[in-house]
């Protein structure tokens, strides 16, 4: 059940330049699924719209969620000042996550680019929780050798890394790292910039492997009423019967073949 509440900040750390890791105490941690997101609200009364942030990790026993986000403007910069004990308004859990059921017993490749990496940690952990022997590979692309979440990912999967500047791992895009890894996936989950998702979709199609991608768009309501965060779809969408699906509620995770990334 979605709800809006005031959450307590458990802790916050800066884990790379402009990248922060925020643990929140929330009532809905048990229900939150990998690939879902929350809306965070600023304390600044002039910046009213929520900021959608994907869930990076959940601690269901302690009732906590971890959000890893990048400072993208004044709103997220405000979040980065939060300290343990502070309060923040949050709505969640929102959206449709990754279909973890499909991953059980398969060789799974998780592809994350930049700030699309955090939800891949939640996916890797969710798969491991259900299937401790799962063969999970994470291919992650960074701008440079800051490698946020690398240790967390390494604990639950095999990790291959690319950097734009070649300062660590494969010099190039995350798809270069995928090809370097000799991965032979039976299922792909991915999150990252559109140009990356386009390459992932193409790769999956060539390999004939089912692929699910997590989309990003500016949002207002976060719950499917305003139609602000649409993405172009290849077929007639269920809600409006045009070719535009709602990222917030029909997604953010879609079967790759259903999204028109051109």
């Amino acid at each position: 059940m979605k709800r809006k509440e005031t959450a307590a900040v458990v802790s916050q750390d800066r884990i790379a330049d402009g990248i922060f890791s925020l643990w929140l105490q929330v009532s809905f941690a048990k229900e939150a699924e990998a690939g879902q997101f929350v809306s965070l609200f600023t304390a600044d009364g002039t910046r009213l719209l929520p900021r959608p942030v994907s869930i990076c990790e959940t601690d269901k026993d302690a009732g906590r969620i971890r959000l890893v986000y990048r400072i993208a403007g004044a709103g997220t910069e405000g979040f980065s000042k939060l300290k343990a004990g502070d309060r923040i308004d949050v709505m969640g859990p929102l959206g449709r996550g990754f279909p973890i059921d499909l991953a059980l017993g398969k060789r799974v490749l998780l592809i994350g680019g930049g700030i699309g990496i955090p939800p891949m940690l939640s996916a890797a952990k969710a798969i491991r929780l259900r299937d401790p022997d799962a063969a999970v590979t994470c291919a992650v692309g960074y701008r440079t050798n800051d490698r946020y979440l690398y240790n967390d990912l390494s604990a639950v999967s095999d990790v291959v890394v690319s950097t734009d500047d070649g300062s660590y791992g494969v010099h190039g895009t995350v798809m270069d790292a995928v090809r370097f890894s000799d991965a032979d996936p039976q299922l792909i989950f991915a999150c990252g910039p559109k140009v990356m998702l386009r390459a992932v979709k193409e790769y999956a199609k060539t390999k004939g492997v089912p692929c699910f991608i997590s989309m990003e768009e500016r949002m207002a309501c976060g719950v499917g009423v305003c139609l602000g965060c649409i993405c172009q779809t290849t077929g007639i969408d269920e809600h409006s019967h045009v070719k535009k699906a709602r990222v917030c509620t029909d997604g953010p995770v879609f079967p790759a073949e259903e999204v028109d990334l051109t």
Partner: peptide, 27 residues
Amino acid sequence: PWEGNPAPRIAEVSGGMLNCIGLQNPG
């Protein structure tokens, strides 16, 4: 059914928002 406008359809402004949804609706 109306398609509405392409993204981006939403922009935040001080104390409010702009939208150009374009009245997407299923008919």
